[in-house]
Nucleic acid binder design. Structure first.
Lengths: 120, 120
DNA sequence: CGTATACATATCGTCTAACGATACGTCATG
DNA sequence: CATGACGTATCGTTAGACGATATGTATACG
């Protein structure tokens, strides 16, 4: 009993959350995820190829995402050897669960006067 | 130029955020932080001694926390060999910055109808 | 009194994942 | 035809998470 495909209870890492969040907007290929995340975070999160594709592989193994067709499939024959990914039902669930966790952190932080000052 | 004490731009890990969050409520010693985090997260985040004390050491090195006296110093002579920690000014800033980042993630997620459903 | 248990800190070894470098390939531009 | 953006993949290094283990103190219990 060495391999445990995925323990749903274990919180996701920040890079993974961002990848999932990008895919929550629609099916995307790796490079598009990278651009999406960098743009959205204003460059704060910068996904290198290692982080990106290794994370994608792990997410595939864990059944949180799956390879498939693009949402906005261009009539283009073959632009390049792109691989499109989309969230699975499980992926949606896990992402929502993770966001709920982050929400709880923020709620807790906002209950602290010393922290609220800087937090809208 | 190998050692960079701390790059303020680099996002913190979840365990570290939780530790900082516990200290945002007042000075605490390691074991109290552990209990605090476990209780607050309903057991979802469980800090083992390795994670905990190694993170504390890194935070000390980075100047985000400092060793000091307890808030609620008991009149007790010496309960045990406890080490109390508190956030530094820099620690408060970094934590607020980090929470702002998490807030941005949540705002973005809430803009997605498919994600809003599960997120209050 | 002795021992079990909760409290408290510290270190070590292992393993996962982040990260940057590198590589390979396609496509458009000049 | 070379340069650079696009796109995927793998490798080596390193940081950090994690559990096991060690050590010690205070306290409850029989």
């Amino acid at each position: 009993m060495r391999k445990r495909a995925e323990d749903p209870r274990k919180p996701l890492s920040l890079p993974v959350i961002h990848i999932l969040l990008a895919l929550a907007e629609g099916a995307r290929h790796g490079y598009a995820i990278k651009q999406d995340v960098e743009e959205r975070t204003g460059g704060a999160i910068r996904l290198g190829p290692g982080t990106l594709y290794e994370a994608i592989q792990r997410l595939l193994d864990g059944g949180l995402i799956e390879e498939g067709a693009a949402d906005d499939e261009p009539a283009n024959g073959q632009v390049a050897q792109r691989r499109y990914y989309a969230l699975t039902a499980r992926g949606w669930d896990v992402l929502r669960e993770e966001l709920r966790r982050l929400g709880a952190i923020l709620d807790h932080a906002r209950a602290n006067p010393r922290l609220r000052k800087g937090l809208v």
